[in-house]
């Protein structure tokens, strides 16, 4: 569970209950930096998963994107969480290419745009995560079961929302989301891909874990790590 302090609540403007720790600029930046580090550690694994059913560049593309994101964060020090996520998104769109650049870039941009200027409550952050998924689905057109990142994101968002509705703080909700994302990630293995390059393989895509769902599981796991 969450153990909040007045510092984290954002200069006294945030919510007062310990469960309602807010997502502020430092926490958002810590999340993105943790995600960048996770992409670095798992780069080879992501690329190997992508070699099996795609074109073998998921790890290197995300690595290139998050390296650029770190440079932007170092230089800019965005004022609020929305700006951190928005800049992350626009940088990914500018630097990655492929499908993962626009998809993750649009997700982070939509999250950033959905956040209030003041530190976000867990409920407000749930709304931002929902906006991120909506952006992914609008741009990519994927539905659950298509063997894409949507298969990790959708259950993660549902778990996050359930936890918040049940009174959980950021840490509890993020932890539930991370577990749900990892379950969703593993559940992509028996699926036949219907979107992206893996879909060209037809039944030959069955038996391989989706690389996009794998990187999305990292996204929620690092969120749990930095809020926990």
């Amino acid at each position: 569970m969450d153990h909040d302090t007045p510092d984290h609540a954002g200069a006294g403007t945030g919510p007062s209950t310990p469960e309602a720790r807010a997502l502020d600029a430092p926490l958002a930046e810590a999340w993105i930096r943790a995600l960048a580090a996770a992409v670095d550690v798992h780069q080879r694994e992501l690329t190997d998963l992508d070699s099996a059913i795609g074109d073998g560049d998921h790890g290197s593309n995300l690595h290139r994107g998050f390296t650029a994101v770190l440079a932007v964060l170092d230089a800019l020090q965005p004022a609020d969480a929305g700006a951190v996520l928005g800049r992350t998104g626009s940088t990914l769109i500018s630097k990655v290419g492929g499908a993962s650049g626009p998809l993750y870039g649009s997700a982070f941009r939509a999250m950033g745009a959905a956040l209030p200027p003041s530190p976000a409550t867990p409920a407000e952050f749930a709304g931002a995560l929902a906006a991120g998924l909506a952006a992914v689905r609008r741009l990519g057109g994927a539905a659950p079961g298509d063997k894409t990142l949507v298969d990790a994101y959708t259950p993660a968002l549902a778990a996050f929302e359930r936890a918040v509705a049940g009174g959980a703080g950021l840490a509890g909700a993020a932890s539930a989301a991370a577990e749900a994302a990892e379950r969703g990630m593993r559940a992509t293995t028996p699926l036949q891909a219907r979107k992206g390059r893996a879909s060209y393989l037809g039944p030959r895509s069955i038996g391989h874990q989706d690389p996009g769902a794998t990187s999305t599981a990292l996204l929620f796991r690092t969120l749990a790590d930095v809020t926990g």
Binding site: N61, K95, G97, G98
Partner: peptide
């Protein structure tokens, strides 16, 4: 031209 086998970026 994008990276090898990777689409160009919107910019």
């Amino acid at each position: 031209p994008g990276e090898v086998f990777t689409s160009p970026v919107p910019d």
